[in-house]
Design a protein around this nucleic acid. Structure first.
Length: 196
DNA sequence: TCGACGATGACCT
DNA sequence: GGTCATCGTCGAA
């Protein structure tokens, strides 16, 4: 098992990182309960010129300031009053880029995921950004968590496998005008854990 | 202070 | 296809 190194996150191209994160493994250790899963769907957000991004045009608020930090930490925020969203902050300090983790294929800790979601249905338990956080126990307190730590981290996939990347438009960003048309949502083609 | 609004998901017809 | 739960954040007042 090999954790992703710091320079993985410092890449200047957030769309490259979003694609490279596919196939990587997300881990959480919540009160000693370890869950993991393969990232199968991501979306890129770029502060510099992307209206869909919370940090568009240099906007800085208490919520999004973590996006301006050096890459390699988590940006977690509450959406619609009930769903947490997990983002991976990328690029060097001062560049507000982040990758939203939209769907994961479960590996370990399925029983913890079922318990957190209070369900017995495995189907789509970690498909969709709100479900990823719920299943993995990620909450607002994990905002700014360093991916180099032992609570929330990312690893290379120990099993090498080939897959085709599918690019499509991002979800729920219609307000962003032309930027909503960007093909910045990436998924592993034909993977059943990709969100609908 | 206060009102409007989400980078959603579950369940309904 | 449609509705609605639910609350932190933002920006206007």
């Amino acid at each position: 098992m090999q954790k992703l190194t710091k320079d993985f996150f410092l890449n200047d191209s957030v769309t490259n990182v979003a694609q490279e994160l596919l196939g990587k493994v997300l881990f959480t250790n919540i009160n000693g309960n370890i869950s993991s899963g393969i990232i199968v769907e991501t979306e890129a957000y770029c502060g510099r010129d992307d209206k869909a991004c919370h940090a568009y045009n240099g906007k800085i608020t208490k919520r999004n300031e973590v996006m301006y930090a050096q890459g390699g930490i988590a940006y977690v925020y509450l959406c619609y009053g009930m769903h947490n969203m997990l983002n991976v902050v990328t690029n060097t300090a001062g560049h507000a880029d982040a990758v939203l983790i939209r769907a994961v294929e479960p590996l370990e800790g399925l029983s913890y995921m079922l318990a957190r979601k209070q369900t017995s249905k495995i189907e789509r338990i970690s498909s969709g950004p709100g479900n990823v956080c719920k299943a993995f126990g990620i909450e607002l307190i994990h905002n700014e968590t360093d991916f180099g730590g032992n609570e929330l981290w990312l690893e290379e996939n120990p099993t090498h496998f080939d897959f085709e990347i599918r690019a499509s438009t991002r979800i729920g960003v219609d307000y962003a005008g032309d930027d909503a048309k960007r093909l910045w949502r990436y998924s592993i083609k034909d993977n059943k854990w990709v969100s609908k």
